[in-house]
Simulated scan of single mutants.
Amino acid sequence: MPGAETDELLKAMVPLLRIRPVIDDSCRFGGTWESLHAPNGRGWAQFHMVTRGSCLVERPGLGPQRLDAGDILLLPHGDSHAVRSQANGVATRISSEIRNGIRQRRTVDARADTEFLCGRFLFEMSDENPLIAALPDEIVVRTAGEPLLERFRRLLIDIRDELDAGRVGSQMVAADLARALFVMMLRDHLADEGSGNGTVSLLRDRATARVVLAILNDLARDWTLDEMAAVAVSSRATLVRAFRKHAGIAPMTFLSDLRLTIARKRLAGTTDPIAKIAGDVGYASESALSKAIMRRYGLRPGALRMAEPGP
């Protein structure tokens, strides 16, 4: 990336990489099982690291995501979701015990064929960082058979081995390794021009970055194209061309999509009242947001946050 075009992105990225991870669960499951995860609130991300076998992650309004051994899934907005076996049927009972500060979860009367770690981390300064909103619904790293991702795989194995050993301080060591892993994931995602993240692409250009940052700082404002052009210090036509070049859409379409995307993330990742979310992202009423959510995702807003904590 040319240095002159990345100033705004780099400024926003640095505080984003200050994270505090917490490893909550070490899971060894077999048979038919399901584990539900409630939203964690603003600033909290959730993650799953699969070390053996495979599983499915499902979220209301979005398609299922299959994870296999060596895969690392990051949900930057802490969405409510379910992790389950690929097989359907009556769920096997899950037992839990705390060991070395980590909850050990196992299926009862079913040999484990899938193992993974679950946790979350807090983005420090999340309220001030526009890239939090710009991050996608999920970031997945698939390390199996990828020589270029050997560093991720080594960290994943080290985290698992540290927790399995159960030595004094293992939880702290594993958390530090996890911090390094996720900083690398976020850094690589934000630096990847081919990631398909339109908002991040816009932040690489000085003029469009001014507009994106202004919108993210005042999403409820009734923005006009003239106001956006004034922020960008450009003409309307120049701004439209720049948005189409970097994101493939016009500025007003970007604004509409961003409002709906952030509303979905707030609904799935927090327990904030729907009316408050509607006002914060620029919808005239809760009803207007509900209609937009239904058109885009085929669900009512409340259905995006139905998951409850696992047993």
Score class of each variant (00 low, 15 high):
Pro15Gly: 10
Leu36Arg: 15
Leu258Ala: 11
Ala207Met: 10
Leu10Gly: 00
Pro39Cys: 07
Cys27Gln: 11
Glu58Tyr: 01
Gly310Trp: 05
Thr270Pro: 01
Leu203Arg: 07
Trp223Lys: 06
Pro60Ala: 15
Ala82Asn: 01
Asp176Ser: 12
Tyr283Gly: 03
Leu267Phe: 06
Val240Phe: 01
Leu202Phe: 10
Met172Gln: 14
Lys11Ala: 13
Glu150Arg: 13
Ala275Pro: 00
Leu163His: 05
Leu219Cys: 07
Arg142Phe: 03
Ile23Glu: 07
Gly70His: 08
Leu135Arg: 02
Ser35His: 09
Leu213Gln: 14
Gln65Met: 14
Val140Ala: 02
Asp71Tyr: 04
Gly31Phe: 07
Thr92Val: 11
Ala232Tyr: 11
Leu181Arg: 02
Asn217Val: 00
Leu239Val: 08
Leu299Ala: 06
Ile215Ser: 09
Gly41Leu: 06
Ser26Trp: 06
Pro130Met: 02
Cys27Gly: 01
Ala134Gly: 06
Ala178Pro: 00
Met49Pro: 01
Ile249Ala: 12
Pro15Trp: 10
Arg206Trp: 06
Asp226Pro: 00
Ala12Val: 07
Gln171Met: 11
Pro76Ser: 06
Thr114Met: 04
Ser96Arg: 15
Asp192Arg: 10
Arg84Ser: 11
Val22Ile: 09
Arg93Ser: 14
Leu304Ser: 05
Asp205Pro: 08
Arg241Leu: 12
Gly169Ala: 07
Ile215Met: 15
Glu5Thr: 14
Gly302Cys: 03
Ala242Tyr: 03
Met228Trp: 04
Ala247Tyr: 05
His246Asp: 04
Arg106Ser: 12
Val212Asn: 03
Thr143Ser: 12
Val211Leu: 11
Ala292Tyr: 02
Arg52Cys: 11
Arg244Thr: 08
Val281Met: 02
Ala144Asp: 13
Glu5Ala: 13
Trp223Phe: 12
Thr253Asn: 08
Ile293Tyr: 02
Thr92Ile: 00
Leu117Cys: 04
Leu56Phe: 13
Lys291Met: 09
Thr270Lys: 04
Ala82Ser: 13
Ala247Glu: 01
Gln65His: 11
Ser26Glu: 12
Val173Ala: 12
